[in-house]
Simulated assay, not measured.
Amino acid sequence: MTNQATAPSLFAPARLGAMELPNRLVMPPMSRNRAAAGGVPTPLMAEYYAQRASAGLIVAEASSPNQVGYTYPDIPGIFTDAQVEGWRLVTDAVHDAGGRVFLQIEHGGRIGHPETSGLIPLAPSPIALPGYIHTPSGHGEPPVPREMSTAEIRATIGDFTAAARNAIRAGADGVEVHAANGYLLNQFLATSTNHRTDAYGGTVANRIRFVVEVVEAVAAAIGPERTGLRLSPGNPHNGIAMDDADVLFPALLEALAPLGLAYLHLAYAAPTPLFARLRRLWHGVLIANPSDPEAAESDPIPADGGLGAANGILDAGADLVALGRPFIANPDLVERLRTGAPVNRLRGDLPLYGGGAAGYTDYPVLEDADTRSAVA
């Protein structure tokens, strides 16, 4: 845990479980929708992640633990042998490049569509996602999800556990359980999406129960030192509203603290009173992503590559800092920030999601940029 009075440099080494990290920069999970048919990771994905292996830690993109958990088209999974072998290409490439990689496990809950998964989505309550959802044929109307039975909740816990074992079998150094940003586990936490009256709804103790049981099961299966958790207090994306976040999130951390997890990852973190309170309650490694939940994805990368925000959240008590879009456009982000070199901007002519190598693996590193300038 960081002592706020002596916050370390972003480029100082850190320890995470049994791993030594060469710096405190984390590439967070970011879906890019480039998996092959059947949710199988590809050699192009392996190249993309290997290019960014200088990050202290990579948390690879959200992967579904089962068929009904798929969110959007061309999202990878981690529940079939073919998916495991695809992810092994990725982890081998990252390790060969000297990096370290966890894999995020995400169940979409109500964020899903039969056109994508072939199934009606499952959720804590039959409340549809507001707005629209991306499907293979374009924008679609979100279906009303089917309320999960207790048996389906138990089965889903088993699916998360099996997915975690598969991730380790695929060579990942650990997994991140995704309970943020409006997906299934976050839906159980939020009052706007969980209207249940059984043991998984109503009170704070009941609404945190599913997350606690998933994390406990995953940690028991692969070891707590290989298990991280992502939360997003204050993020309203995907129709999430929570009128008791200042009570619920501390209660959740208190329930999980005895497990000794590898880390807690807070998305859209800012030095708020709630952040300070969660930092005091969490005695393990804290990863903070200092993005603004209201910022559009098309917003430009800061001229400093996010260095100012990263140092600010380190000063507020984070141990590691996750920067998203800067890592998309800058495979060598660590070196650029360390040396003060200019950063690449996001290519506005290409979508972030889907496609091939363009805007994915073709961003230049410093040597390429220098060569191009010399030739010009």
Rank of each mutant, 00 (worst) to 15 (best):
A341C: 00
L352Y: 14
G324W: 07
G356F: 10
G317T: 07
L314V: 14
G355V: 08
P300S: 15
G317E: 10
T339Q: 15
A309W: 01
A322M: 10
L352W: 11
A341Y: 03
I301S: 02
L333H: 10
P364W: 11
D319T: 11
L350N: 01
T339L: 15
P326D: 03
A310V: 05
R347T: 05
G312F: 04
G340S: 02
N330Q: 07
P302I: 07
D304V: 07
A358Q: 15
L314E: 11
R345C: 01
Y353I: 05
L333C: 12
G317Y: 06
P351Q: 09
A309M: 09
P300L: 12
E335R: 13
A316F: 10
N330R: 07
A309I: 04
L350M: 00
G348Q: 15
I313E: 02
N330G: 07
N330L: 09
I301Y: 00
G312Y: 05
G356D: 15
G359S: 11
I328R: 01
P342W: 09
A357D: 13
L337S: 08
G340T: 11
N311D: 15
G354R: 11
G355P: 06
G359K: 09
D362N: 12
I328V: 15
L314M: 14
A358V: 05
Y363N: 08
L323H: 07
G306Y: 08
L323I: 11
D304S: 06
L346D: 12
V334T: 14
G356S: 14
A316I: 07
A318G: 08
A318F: 11
A318Q: 11
L323Q: 10
I328M: 13
G348S: 14
L337G: 02
G340P: 01
G308C: 03
L314F: 13
G306A: 09
R345G: 15
R345F: 00
R338T: 05
I313D: 06
D315A: 15
A318T: 07
R338G: 10
L320E: 09
L333R: 06
I328D: 01
E335L: 14
R325A: 10
D304K: 05
